[in-house]
Design a protein around this nucleic acid. Sequence first.
DNA 1: ATTATCTATTACCTAAAGGTTAGTAGGTAA
DNA 2: TTACCTACTAACCTTTAGGTAATAGATAAT
Lengths: 127, 127
Amino acid sequence: MKEQKESEEVVVNKEFTDECHRVMAAVSDALYAIGGKWKLMIIIAMARGNNRFTELQRQVTGISARVLSSELKELELNGFIIKKVAVGYPVTIEYQLLPYSHTLEEVVAAMTKWGMQHREKIKKDRS
Amino acid sequence: MKEQKESEEVVVNKEFTDECHRVMAAVSDALYAIGGKWKLMIIIAMARGNNRFTELQRQVTGISARVLSSELKELELNGFIIKKVAVGYPVTIEYQLLPYSHTLEEVVAAMTKWGMQHREKIKKDRS
DNA sequence: ATTATCTATTACCTAAAGGTTAGTAGGTAA
DNA sequence: TTACCTACTAACCTTTAGGTAATAGATAAT
């Protein structure tokens, strides 16, 4: 049985629905740019001074050279990092965070906080 | 050429590395629990009063019944939502957010904000 | 009577993410 | 000169997320 709705209510529903869609679209965009297993890990490790390929491979436990290489390329393409080649003997290659990657700080902080308390909760639930 | 490091410096590095690993582990945990294309979308839609299966399917654009069904099960398993079956004619089934899902609010807010400004940036970059 | 709606489940399939292994081209150390 | 380090790349394979379509059992609408 469907209720007949007043037009005012319908308008309110529409605004609510639109806001819902805007939020979902924004979160989707964020997940698209920083989702996946590794992108945030790399940015976190770089924010702590790991700028060389091999350093990153060691710090970001479990990542393979292939995946690290392709993730670095994507991060560069999306304006989060830059690749610097320093001429000299030997040629050294460094990756550096660009200012844009710092806009992620709030997201990373929120996820870190939540992830930590989530792990605590899981531990408690098990015992 | 490898530099010989003072033991103090080594200790500082170790602490730094450990902190880095703790942050990465926490973010991994978060991504594991709420990652994927749909989990946050469903929670966002439910926070705005969509509690029935079909309502959710309509609100969360693009999700299929199969995926919605399995995501709801996972969300229930992980303590984010609860499934309520109201006996009667007809039997109605409602999903409700549990208090634990509200702990995600900060994460969702941060991602929404970042996603919106990211979209703006992309738009500017194109033009 | 039959058509549609609600809440799913099942089987099957595809595409994308990511892992494994090996190899490269240069340099460095023993 | 043997062996290892750096910064990758290529070829290949596995896993998993997610999509499609069909079906089901109930009730409600036309």
